[in-house]
Design a binder for these strands. Structure first.
Length: 250
DNA sequence: CCGTTATTACTCGAAATGTT
DNA sequence: AACATTTCGAGTAATAACGG
């Protein structure tokens, strides 16, 4: 039911040492953040809100991106940088995401005003450019979502990067594509195939993971048709759009 | 010899991943 | 989408080392 994907990795916070609120019917342990004189408005309701979203699933895994990226050859990394996705190469190896913190953050995100609201006068405005600053992905002038792709084009794309499966959403075997040897002798088709496969991989594993195992959304494939202009698309807006969508579900 | 501190081992829970 | 399994990290307890 409440299924949300979380596209931002959390900067490793000092994991809160809250041993779960036991069923002991004793003191309700006022959960004021260390400050003390925090907003007395409704510290409880907001907290319950986050707790109610405990049943969340998340297919986002920076670690798989990290392990792939760390095994890329110099040549491939240069290709990635040329695409404008250089920031992906710097992804830290975070193997665990704090889902509670993610859910809490998303619950504070107002999609209308595009800011995190922590209380009266406590707001952090978020812009899609910030996504680019943090993740280091292209922030071009073409909107990803305006592009569309037909079934045939999708088929052709998948074929060109070596994904043979008939299921258009499946990305099984994409790692094999990315591990194929590439050097300056390789044809431009092979390099383009690598570029497309790389974008699909990071979208599927980090930026906008689908809730289903080994599957991705189809809404960004249109942007992949144009191999030469991958860096001219606004991937930040695409990612941020998915964050907002997830926030609305919370 | 006792009390305090540091290192290590183990247990438990949460998150990731795969399957039906 | 729900369920099951695996993996990983944090917390805790036990033990060893050190100093008084």
């Amino acid at each position: 039911m409440v299924v949300e994907r979380d596209e931002k990795w959390v900067p490793q916070f000092p994991s809160n040492p809250s041993r779960r609120f036991g069923p002991s019917s004793s003191t309700p342990t006022g959960r004021n953040g260390g400050g003390g004189s925090v907003t007395p408005s409704s510290p409880n309701s907001s907290y319950d809100e986050a707790v109610s979203a405990l049943c969340i699933t998340n297919r986002c895994s920076p670690k798989s991106v990290f392990s792939l990226v760390s095994n890329l050859s110099k040549f491939k990394k240069q290709i990635v940088r040329d695409m404008g996705f250089g920031g992906i190469l710097e992804i830290p190896c975070i193997s665990k995401l704090n889902l509670k913190l993610s859910a809490w953050l998303l619950s504070k995100l107002d999609s209308e005003e595009s800011c995190l609201i922590f209380g009266p006068g406590r707001r952090i405005y978020v812009h899609e450019d910030d996504v680019g600053i943090v993740l280091g992905i292209p922030n071009g002038d073409i909107d990803v979502s305006t592009t569309s792709v037909t079934k045939e084009q999708l088929e052709l794309l998948r074929f060109s990067i070596g994904l043979a499966s008939t299921d258009p959403r499946s990305i099984k075997g994409i790692e094999y594509v990315l591990e194929k040897h590439l050097d300056d002798q390789s044809s431009s088709q092979q390099i383009d195939g690598f570029k497309v496969a790389f974008v699909v991989f990071i979208i599927g594993h980090l930026l906008a993971p689908c809730v289903k195992h080994d599957q991705v959304h189809l809404d960004f494939w249109g942007a992949l048709k144009n191999h030469a202009a991958l860096e001219r698309y606004n991937w930040c807006r695409y990612v941020y759009g998915h964050v907002l969508e997830a926030a609305q579900k919370v």
